[in-house]
């Protein structure tokens, strides 16, 4: 046997066990937003790395910058520290004397699949332009899009799902919010017309 034959025989044991053919098209539709709308990447990263980013800020420090961003329907000055790690920043703002801090970050992919760290400005701009869902002190559920806000508590169906369409300018965001047993309200948002039909989404204006 030649070295090539030996090598091929040795590595022929490697087979992907997962059937990715069905996953790719579904994921691609979601990932298209990852590329075209950085908000998806940024928002996801906020959730994933939120816990650890503040610790890094304390240890590493970094250059602090101030951005203006829409958060929960209000234009707020947000300060940012670059954590000095691969993709992360720490964002914070002050509301009613309380310091709100969270971690965020994200990457964009170039044509060859190389990751590039998003700038903090990119992340905050995209975050500002995305619908945000949150609860108030009375437990009411609100959706925000820039300066707009709406109480959507009564729009949840018996399965704990709420579908709303919120628009700003010419862009409509289709948002699906789920009421979880732990009291959280995770949501998905897309500017693509949903496959399940946009008529299922209650317009909010």
């Amino acid at each position: 046997m030649t070295n090539k034959e030996k090598y091929k025989e040795a590595f022929s044991v490697l087979h992907a066990s997962r059937d990715i053919s069905l996953e790719v098209e579904n994921m691609a539709n979601k990932k298209r937003k990852y590329k075209m709308n950085l908000a998806v990447a940024a928002a996801a990263a906020c959730i994933i790395i939120g816990g650890s980013a503040t610790a890094y800020a304390a240890d590493v420090g970094g250059i602090q910058k101030i951005f203006s961003a829409w958060i929960r329907g209000e234009k707020i000055e947000v300060s940012m520290k670059d954590n000095g790690d691969e993709n992360g920043y720490t964002f914070s703002y002050n509301t009613d004397g309380t310091e709100v801090t969270w971690g965020g970050g994200g990457v964009s992919l170039d044509a060859d699949g190389n990751e590039e760290k998003l700038s903090a400005q990119d992340i905050m701009d995209e975050y500002s332009d995305m619908p945000q869902v949150d609860t108030d002190d009375a437990g009411r559920v609100w959706i925000y899009l820039q300066e707009q806000s709406a109480d959507i508590t009564d729009l949840f169906d018996e399965k704990g799902i709420c579908r709303v369409a919120v628009s700003h300018g010419n862009v409509t965001h289709y948002v699906k919010i789920t009421r979880e047993k732990d009291g959280s309200y995770p949501y998905e948002s897309s500017t693509d017309v949903p496959k399940e039909g946009k008529e299922l989404y209650t317009p909010i204006n």
């Binding site: 997962r18 990715i20 790719v24 691609a28 298209r32």
Partner: peptide, 12 residues
């Protein structure tokens, strides 16, 4: 990686 690569082909 395999899945992400095909997704990138799909979206490129």
């Amino acid at each position: 990686v395999v899945q992400e690569t095909f997704i990138q082909y799909y979206t490129t």
